[in-house]
């Protein structure tokens, strides 16, 4: 049964109250390392959003028209990953052609998007919650935007943190994680925005 979710509510929920990173812990690896630099964060955020939306749509189509009818649901992990890897590969080539400068700055991070848990995570959530096509697009777009918002905010905070007197043991990943914890708490504050459908 496709859940009865208003797409607008779903969009806001996936950006704010159920942020793919701050509430669902997905997409952290590259998050922590990239968020040191604002420009790469922005670029990566955009790339992740685009990849998320495209792959979610493709995966939904494959799921509904190939995997389910042919009783191949158990292969979904492999199919989803292949779709994601292929999309990233193609996106890499497109970026390289359209804007070599962006390609240079994103560098190694593009292939990393393939193993970004958020992308596979969104596909898996979409499948397990039985979303419709519209819900899938909205969910993926919202998750991407939420991730982007989180990484840019973290980059901005990190810029200030660099100058702060942080104890040696806490420097780097330690303080970053605690900062993310505070951000997660702040985002919980958005819960009042939505009511049970």
């Amino acid at each position: 049964m496709v859940p009865d979710l208003n797409p607008v509510v779903l969009l806001f929920a996936s950006i704010f109250t159920s942020n793919i990173l701050l509430a669902n812990f997905l997409g952290m690896c590259s998050f922590i390392s990239i968020s040191k630099d604002m420009k790469s964060s922005n670029g990566l955020g955009l790339a992740v959003t685009v990849v998320l939306t495209l792959t979610a749509m493709l995966n939904w189509v494959l799921l509904q028209y190939v995997l389910i009818p042919l009783d191949l649901l158990y292969l979904r992990y492999i199919i989803f990953i292949i779709v994601i890897a292929a999309t990233v590969q193609i996106l890499e080539m497109v970026i390289d052609r359209v804007s070599p400068a962006l390609y240079m700055s994103l560098g190694i991070f593009l292939p990393l998007i393939t193993v970004n848990c958020a992308i596979l995570g969104v596909a898996l959530f979409m499948q397990i919650r039985n979303y419709s096509f519209v819900q899938t697009v909205v969910f993926a777009l919202g998750s991407g935007l939420g991730w982007w918002l989180a990484i840019v905010t973290l980059a901005a905070i990190q810029k200030k943190l660099v100058k702060a007197p942080v104890p040696a043991g806490l420097k780097g990943p330690g303080i970053t994680l605690i900062t993310i914890g505070f951000m997660a708490m702040a985002f919980i504050g958005f819960s009042g925005m939505l009511r049970v459908q």
Binding site: M1, P3, D4, L5, S18, F125, R129
Partner: peptide, 9 residues
């Protein structure tokens, strides 16, 4: 029974 949970059925 069947109904909407937070994200799914």
């Amino acid at each position: 029974f069947k109904g909407n949970g937070l994200w799914g059925t």
